[in-house]
Simulated scan of single mutants.
Amino acid sequence: MAEGFVGRMLGKMFPSRQVPVKATTQASHVRERAFGGNTAAMAAHYGVSERTVQRWIKGDRTPQGADAERLETQAAEVQITETGRKRRAREYTAKGTGFSGVGVTVDLDDAGVEIKGSAVVRAGRMRPPVVVKLTGEQAAALVEDPDSPEAEDAINQALADYFQLPFGDVTAADLHTIR
């Protein structure tokens, strides 16, 4: 799922579903909720031994580097239930093209957003962090399936909407979100 700014957007959409701080809790939640309690399946997914996963859960070892990032991302995913996702999508859909109430600060360079179109945007003069505000429809697409092409289109459209005011020539087709 969603990493970086997409993860932050989901965090704002589901404020009561925060990622556990401790790696032991993250590992435990991921094993139970994503892998049905199957340590072997989780170990295979992470490319580590079963013993390593057991040590993460027990607290004898802490995941490092890419494993730590993947675990945190997956721990965020398992906090949101399918029922909660559907309910929240209905709420956002009802807001239509109006502001959903979800806005997040995005560092375009860190988020891996490529922009073509306006020379001013491409030249990097508009690369400080921006606040992207989602419409109800955009937020609903992101909530329903953050990894779908529809969610990426919604994010790109929200970014294009942001850049419309100063430049007027940026469209969603000018944007590419690298995940």
Rank of each mutant, 00 (worst) to 15 (best):
82 E>Q: 12
94 A>V: 01
110 D>T: 14
84 G>A: 09
95 K>H: 02
102 V>I: 15
96 G>D: 08
79 Q>I: 05
82 E>T: 11
93 T>C: 03
75 A>L: 07
86 K>N: 12
97 T>G: 08
103 G>R: 07
84 G>W: 01
108 L>F: 12
76 A>G: 15
107 D>W: 09
93 T>M: 08
80 I>K: 10
91 E>M: 09
88 R>T: 08
106 V>T: 10
76 A>V: 01
84 G>R: 06
98 G>N: 14
90 R>F: 11
100 S>E: 01
106 V>Y: 00
104 V>S: 04
87 R>K: 15
99 F>H: 11
105 T>D: 02
85 R>G: 10
98 G>M: 04
106 V>G: 01
86 K>V: 05
107 D>Y: 05
90 R>H: 14
99 F>I: 03
108 L>M: 14
97 T>R: 15
111 A>K: 03
77 E>Y: 13
90 R>T: 14
102 V>N: 00
83 T>D: 11
101 G>C: 04
105 T>E: 07
98 G>C: 02
101 G>H: 04
91 E>F: 08
84 G>S: 10
112 G>W: 09
78 V>P: 09
75 A>E: 08
83 T>G: 08
76 A>C: 14
99 F>P: 15
95 K>M: 12
86 K>H: 08
112 G>K: 09
85 R>Y: 08
102 V>K: 03
114 E>Y: 05
81 T>V: 04
93 T>V: 04
88 R>Q: 11
86 K>A: 12
77 E>I: 06
94 A>I: 03
91 E>H: 11
106 V>I: 12
79 Q>S: 12
98 G>L: 07
108 L>H: 02
109 D>K: 13
109 D>F: 10
93 T>N: 07
107 D>E: 15
106 V>M: 08
101 G>D: 05
84 G>H: 02
85 R>A: 04
77 E>A: 14
97 T>Y: 06
110 D>F: 14
79 Q>D: 05
100 S>C: 03
81 T>K: 05
77 E>C: 07
78 V>R: 10
111 A>G: 10
101 G>F: 01
92 Y>D: 01
111 A>L: 08
76 A>Y: 14
89 A>H: 06
87 R>A: 01
